[in-house]
């Protein structure tokens, strides 16, 4: 079976081969499902300079799309990054950021 095929296609099986009782045996398989294309108009951009690494954006993200990554930057040992594959663009991160380090930018803008 081609592992690169999406799970939804791999699961188009005969009833004999379908997982027992509809059980989902792959924990967290939803990561395969792209919700990033739900975004309309705007997406968050984090300003690494302004960011104080308080992680408020991280804790409030309903879509687990703000990642804490072990990337040192100046005096910080960690950074935050946006997972655009899943981010739905709600803008909570930008609204809650205490130092206005997150801006909701035009969807068409390239993010470095």
């Amino acid at each position: 079976m081609n592992q690169k095929e999406p799970l939804s296609k791999r699961m188009k099986l005969s009833w004999r081969e379908m997982p027992f009782a509809g059980i989902m045996f792959e924990p967290g398989s939803s990561v395969e499902y792209k919700t990033g294309d739900w975004r309309i108009e705007r997406k968050p951009q984090i300003d690494g300079e302004k960011c104080i690494r308080c992680f408020i954006c991280w804790i409030f993200c309903p879509d687990v799309s703000i990642k804490r990554v072990p990337k040192p930057y100046k005096k910080h040992i960690e950074s935050v990054e946006v997972d655009y594959y899943h981010c739905k663009g709600c803008g909570i991160c930008a609204a809650e950021c205490p130092v206005n380090a997150i801006e909701m930018i035009e969807e068409s803008t390239d993010v470095p």
Binding site: S29, S30, T35, P62, D63
Partner: peptide, 16 residues
């Protein structure tokens, strides 16, 4: 323990 890619609405409080 809770992965992205779920289909709750953008800005969903319960998801948080």
């Amino acid at each position: 323990l809770y992965a992205p890619g779920h289909r709750l609405c953008a800005g969903c409080g319960p998801s948080i």
